[in-house]
Design a protein around this nucleic acid. Structure first.
Lengths: 346, 346
DNA sequence: ATGAAAGCGCTAACAG
DNA sequence: CTGTTAGCGCTTTCAT
């Protein structure tokens, strides 16, 4: 492979030659050190502009103890609204600090534990100043050494296991409880539930929160009304169909995440059934869904933002005990009423 | 700032010391050079694993002519479905090549030309092997030097101006023409139009395509029926309201992008008006919109994927003339009928 | 205020 | 097959 560049990038030495100074003076000017003769500084800047000099950030970062001014973000899939929001939040804070974001997403549906580890190690090889990880592996203990060696990590949406590190998560149990409570308030006594895999901590917490609230309200928690391991809208639509086809169908459905909610909307709309829907996660266009929806809403961007803040605190030397931030959730009414012009409440 | 790391990252020398070899042998093992005594190689690997050695990729990339194995992606806002898809496509191809993606998004609504340039230069300073840019500035001529110095760039959604570089764009004019043609087929003779700022090339092309098709069909192109500079769903809803409040309202609306389409859906649904909607851009959940929709659809992920392919070809030394890839668009019916159980066509 | 020399962690000639 | 010697582009002592 011919790796010669047409016009190789100029270095400080090239600039120095043109400006007629030593390359150290160039370094000073580039770094904005004040103790440089203004005349020389101008000459250097001129020379730099003339040949299009761009300081090599990677070379600068090589000096030990210095920073690469990059942080890594390990997520599953940016095209997912939830991860995109996290990315956005992280990116905002990083940009404020002049830090670049390396986004490493694993496109595969099922991220293997090894793949996730490999991605994280790769980011360590690049000497990212820190990592924000939305973990999918059950255990993070193998990362302890990387953290100890100076790559702080913050975990999002799921606290780390086997590793003392910061995390930012949602108040999952409470959100689910709120939703169940609301449905019960509406008079529903048989509530069906649809959850993604319980291997996802958040999902387990939501299920727990919902179950506890059901018990507290003395409503049924029979197993037949609860589907788990439901992945994606299509699977959710099928699960909802099965629930509604039971001899004793639920009159309301609680969905563990937005994809499940969407599947439920599809199925219930297609049947024209009168079944109330509540779901965890808000989503864009929820307000235009053809059915009324009760959603557990929260600021997904804040997950990324807060994670970034925690991370930068660590990068800046904070050595306090791990912090677990729990972001609040609220209940929100969404969706539209089936008949456009009439504005009456249900 | 105390930048000491608790346990500084070990280097090749550290590994070499433990394995009792020269650090060059470590280098060979790490790089998988075959000509190493298997016994020594094993000892090196063992030592490396023992102390958690991670080769410093940045130091390796310092050697002239080598690559950083990172490419930059310059977009406006990942939380936008369109950009997220581009990111996803780019990421997939990059991952295949073992290349990391630096995502640089400008969170501001109005990205200044300078900010965009600064972002690109920053990525050059980091010596990204190449850049994928969704440009918002009107002119790219100031990037010529960076390209000449070895940072190839591929532009997405908009061809570069003042710079000979590859681009991947949509067949905007054709998509708009298709949509107009379809509306005309449905019997609509007065078609209103809502576009975002025409400074966005794609928007101008869509308008041009629509206008030409209208003329070809001998339909009205009166200025009062066409709104431009409409940014976001709310503005679009207002624009649509104005169009519908005219003494001679259109019976159909064509929207220049998905955000405009969403605004139109909101407004038309709220009024319960019988107005047909067509729009550029497909979007998730379009199939659950409460009104029938005709959408100009395309594979947004492919934009990123093809851009990445072009970029890697350049990185691999392709010096052919710039290529402009035009990705096809198709018309798709979406949305649902207002009354759930009845399946009759309109 | 400026420059010379050393070294960051690694790769790439060259020797041994 | 292995080790030595130079750099890569920059920052950081330490002199001048």
């Amino acid at each position: 492979m011919d790796t010669r560049r047409p016009h190789p990038r100029p270095t400080m030495v090239d600039v120095a030659k043109i400006a007629g100074v030593s390359f150290k003076t160039v370094s000073r000017v580039v770094n904005g050190v004040a103790t440089v003769d203004p005349v020389l500084a101008d000459r250097v800047r001129e020379a730099a502009a003339e040949i299009g000099y761009r300081p090599n950030q990677m070379a600068a970062a090589l000096k030990s103890g210095s920073t690469t001014a990059m942080i890594g973000l390990v997520i599953k899939d940016v095209s997912n609204e939830f991860y995109a929001a996290i990315t956005q939040g992280t990116s905002e804070v990083a940009t404020e600090r002049g830090v670049q974001l390396i986004t490493a997403c694993s496109p595969e549906e099922e991220v293997s534990e090894d793949a996730e580890l490999a991605t994280i190690f790769e980011l360590c090889r690049r000497r990212a100043d820190g990592l924000i990880v939305v973990p999918h592996s059950p255990d993070q203990s193998s990362l302890a050494r990387e953290v100890a060696m100076g790559t702080p990590m913050v975990f999002v949406d799921r606290a780390p296991r086997g590793l003392a590190a910061d995390s930012v998560v949602l108040d999952n149990a409470r959100g689910a409880a709120l939703a169940i409570h609301h449905l019960a308030d509406q008079g529903h006594e048989r509530i069906g539930m649809v959850f993604d895999s319980l291997a996802i901590t958040a999902m387990q917490q939501r299920l727990d929160g919902a179950r506890q609230q059901l018990r507290q309200l003395s409503l049924t928690t029979e197993h037949g009304l609860c589907r788990t391991g439901v992945h994606g809208p299509e699977a959710s639509a099928r699960a909802v169909a099965e629930l509604l086809d039971r001899p004793d169908p639920p009159s309301a459905i609680f969905c563990g995440n937005n994809r499940a909610t969407i599947g439920a909307v599809e199925e219930i709309w297609n049947r024209g059934a009168d079944v109330a829907i509540a779901g965890f996660d808000d989503f864009r266009l929820a307000h235009l869904m053809p059915l009324p929806l009760t959603l557990v809403s929260y600021d997904a961007t804040a997950l990324g933002r807060e994670a970034a803040r925690l991370l930068f605190a660590r990068i800046d030397g904070d050595t306090g005990p791990p912090r677990d931030l729990v972001l609040p959730v609220t209940l929100r009414q969404s969706g539209i009423r089936p008949l456009p012009p009439s504005q009456e409440e249900r």
